[in-house]
Design a protein around this nucleic acid. Structure first.
Length: 293
DNA sequence: AATGCGAGCAACCGCCACAGT
DNA sequence: CACTGTGGCGGTTGCTCGCAT
C-alpha cells in the first residue's frame, strides 16, 4: 500500500477553479505567504486539496507569471535547454523568467516537439531523424483518449498533417507594482531589476563567474510574494469577483524579461558559435551542472 | 446549423527527495 | 537509522473551443 493521499478527497472541489476560489487563495497567500499547503485550504476557506492550491498558485495566480506568446527567442532557448537537460521542465522554467514548468511542458508537447519533428529532428534525442524512416517523423504514440475516433483521422495516409499555424494562446500578464521581481520557485530565479543585469547572470557559459546562487541575489531574502504585489481584489471576497479579470491586472508585455532573456540567449549563441564540438560538450556539461546546484 | 475532430491548456495523479522527529 | 510529513516534479488526463465537414 502506498502513501496516504495528501489529503482526504472527500467533499473537496475538483476541476477548474472559480474566480471566488482564486480570490480566496490569492488573498490568503497575500496575507500569510506561501507554504503549509496542506493546511492552507482549510485556513483559506477553500474546499480544495493543498496540492491543488499550490498548483493553482504556482501555475496561474502568482504575481510574477508572464503570460503571452512564447517568443522565438524563448522558443529557441527552450529547445536548447531541453537538449541539455531533457524533460526537466522546472529547471528549464527556472531559466525562463515568469514561465512555469507546466506552461513550458505543454508548449513543448504541443508545439516544439512537432516543430522539431518537422525540421527532421528527434525531439527526444535532438538528433537528426533519418529521412528514409518516415515513421520516425510521425507523432509519437497518440496519447488521446477517445482514440478510436480520433486516431482514425489523425494521420491520414501516414502523412503527418502539417501543423496549422496557430497563435499560442496569449494569456494575460499580471502587472506588478513593485519594482522588485522575485520568483522564488526552486530558488532558481530571483531577480531585482534595479540591480544591474550584467551582474545577475549566473549562467555564464564557459566563463569564470562567481557562482552565486540566484536566490541569494535577492537582497533581503524576502520570499513573501505578497509584498509589493498588486492584486485587484476587493475586501469583500464573496461576490465581487465575477470574473478572473477582476482579480488580476494583466499587462501585454514585460520588457525586462526580454532583456534578461536576450543576454542569456546571447551566451548560448556565443558558445555554440565559438567552440569546437568537444569543448561545447564539456561546457554544456558544466553548464548543466551549474543548473543542478 | 449541426456534428465531430483535434489542439491546447489547466488540473490531477503518483512518485520521489528531503527535512524533521 | 527509520519513519513520517510535506513540497516539488514530470507524466497524464479531461475539458473547452475552434475549425472542418
Amino acid at each position: 500500500m502506498g502513501r496516504a493521499p495528501c489529503c482526504s478527497k472527500i467533499g473537496l472541489h475538483r476541476g477548474p477553479w472559480t474566480a471566488r476560489e482564486d480570490a480566496l487563495l490569492t488573498k490568503y497567500i497575500q496575507a500569510h505567504g506561501e507554504g503549509n499547503w496542506r493546511s492552507l485550504p482549510k485556513k483559506a476557506g477553500l474546499l480544495r486539496c493543498g496540492k491543488s492550491c499550490r498548483l493553482r498558485w504556482m501555475n496561474y495566480l502568482r504575481p510574477d507569471i508572464k503570460r503571452g506568446n512564447i517568443t522565438p527567442d524563448e522558443d529557441d532557448l527552450i529547445i536548447k535547454m531541453h537538449a541539455l537537460l531533457g524533460n526537466r521542465w522546472s529547471l528549464i522554467a527556472g531559466r525562463l523568467p515568469g514561465r512555469t514548468d507546466n506552461e513550458i511542458k505543454n508548449y513543448w508537447n504541443t508545439h516544439l516537439s512537432k516543430k522539431l519533428r518537422r525540421q527532421g529532428t528527434d525531439p527526444n534525442t535532438h538528433k537528426k531523424l533519418l529521412d528514409s524512416d518516415p515513421n520516425l517523423q510521425e507523432e509519437p504514440k497518440k496519447r488521446r483518449r477517445n482514440s478510436n475516433k480520433q486516431q482514425k483521422n489523425k494521420f491520414k495516409s501516414n502523412v503527418l498533417v502539417s501543423e496549422k499555424v496557430k497563435v499560442h494562446n496569449p494569456k494575460p500578464i499580471r502587472i506588478k507594482s513593485s519594482r522588485n521581481f522575485s520568483m522564488s520557485r526552486n530558488c532558481s530565479f530571483d531577480w531585482t531589476p534595479t540591480s544591474s543585469l550584467e551582474g545577475d547572470h549566473r549562467v555564464a557559459l564557459g566563463t569564470e563567474v562567481e557562482d552565486v546562487p540566484w536566490s541569494s541575489l535577492q537582497e533581503d531574502g524576502d520570499h513573501d510574494h505578497g509584498n509589493g504585489v498588486s492584486f485587484l481584489i476587493g475586501d469583500d471576497d464573496q461576490d465581487n469577483c465575477s470574473d478572473s479579470s477582476d482579480l488580476i491586472k494583466w499587462q501585454s508585455q514585460l520588457p525586462m524579461f526580454d532583456h534578461t532573456l536576450e543576454k542569456l540567449y546571447e551566451e548560448y549563441l556565443q558558445l555554440l558559435k565559438a567552440k569546437d564540438n568537444d569543448q561545447v560538450h564539456d561546457e554544456f556539461d558544466s553548464f548543466a551542472e551549474s543548473l543542478l546546484i
